[in-house]
């Protein structure tokens, strides 16, 4: 009996030890602690994303697998390329202005004495913390085709009325403006945090060397903020390309299709017009492009991080 039991207990002890070691490993603990989040992301992000990919490969009546047939179909549509151009114009212009405004205002706020800085930071963050659908409603009233508050002011100072949402050019300007208004505070707060982490000694050394304010920005501030600028722009570009609420509330993509972006067009085609696979295809169009951009930007950041 003992002869039989001995090897078994040795195996059991070895098993217990290896399990004990596995549990004690930092990577295992980290994995277990991240597990709830991994599960959440799997359920709320990975599954819907995978399902969207699956939908985009079905025919209109969702009865047949068509591979990349929906993408091929879209590439032949004039309207789709208009949407691509508009989405790029919308996202790139909005991100550029958000970054510039965020950068400038972050410098202003950074120069305010610490005592009064908090209230300014709080006030400047307001556009970002209000749900976009709600704040865009207020903008809609300001731009309203018939009762624009801006036009009311223009009329009182003798300027001609502007058809803010009725003319393609002005409508594009309006949706970009609202996106910049709502998104610039995010850049502001990120840049402000980055500015605060730049060692004061670097500026002092630059001043001693006779650097102008522009040289201080170009040779000290920007290199020190490079990583945060890259991450912020990457994140904002992804979010802006996926924007739905601002365009939906303000113009619903109109006039004609002049302000449609990927998300609003996908909704129009997929939900309103009943072509869910094509809607899924429209919404997935930017994924590979953004994924490649994100890979390069993140690789650059991590390379610089390892150099430091």
């Amino acid at each position: 009996m003992a002869d039989i039991a001995a090897p078994n207990s040795a195996v059991a002890t070895r098993g217990r030890n290896s399990l004990h070691k596995l549990v004690q490993r930092k990577s295992t603990v980290a994995f277990l602690m991240a597990l709830p989040l991994i599960l959440l992301i799997t359920i709320l992000v990975a599954y819907p994303a995978g399902y969207a990919v699956w939908l985009s490969m079905l025919n209109k009546s969702m009865t047949k697998f068509v591979g990349f047939g929906n993408f091929q179909f879209l590439f032949k549509r004039e309207t789709f390329w208009e949407i691509v151009a508009q989405s790029c114009l919308f996202a790139l212009t909005a991100v550029l202005f958000k970054a510039m405004i965020g950068f400038v205002v972050a410098h202003f706020v950074n120069n305010i004495p610490t005592k009064g800085q908090r209230k300014w930071r709080g006030m400047l963050l307001v556009p970002w913390v209000i749900p976009a659908a709600m704040s865009t409603l207020s903008w809609l009233w300001l731009f309203d085709p018939s009762y624009s508050a801006f036009n009311w002011i223009f009329a009182h100072i003798g300027l001609p009325k502007i058809s803010w949402l009725g003319e393609a050019g002005w409508a594009r300007f309006s949706v970009i403006l609202v996106n910049v208004w709502a998104g610039a505070p995010f850049f502001l707060i990120m840049y402000l945090a980055a500015l605060k982490s730049v060692p004061e000694q670097l500026y002092e050394a630059a001043s001693i060397d006779g650097a102008t304010w522009w040289q201080r920005i170009w040779y000290v501030t920007l290199p020190m903020m490079r990583n945060i600028i890259a991450i912020t722009i990457l994140f904002s570009t992804i979010v802006t390309f996926a924007n739905f609420d601002i365009v939906r509330v303000l113009t619903s993509g109109g006039p004609l299709t002049a302000t449609h972006v990927f998300a609003t067009w996908a909704f129009k085609v997929g939900i309103e017009s009943g072509d869910i696979p094509l809607g899924a295809t429209v919404s997935l169009f930017m994924v590979p492009i953004l994924a490649v951009a994100a890979t390069f930007i993140l690789r650059d950041i991590s390379k610089r991080g390892s150099e430091v």
Partner: peptide
């Protein structure tokens, strides 16, 4: 018609 009818909902 009013000039902005193309943007009406």
């Amino acid at each position: 018609l009013p000039p902005d009818v193309a943007a009406w909902d």
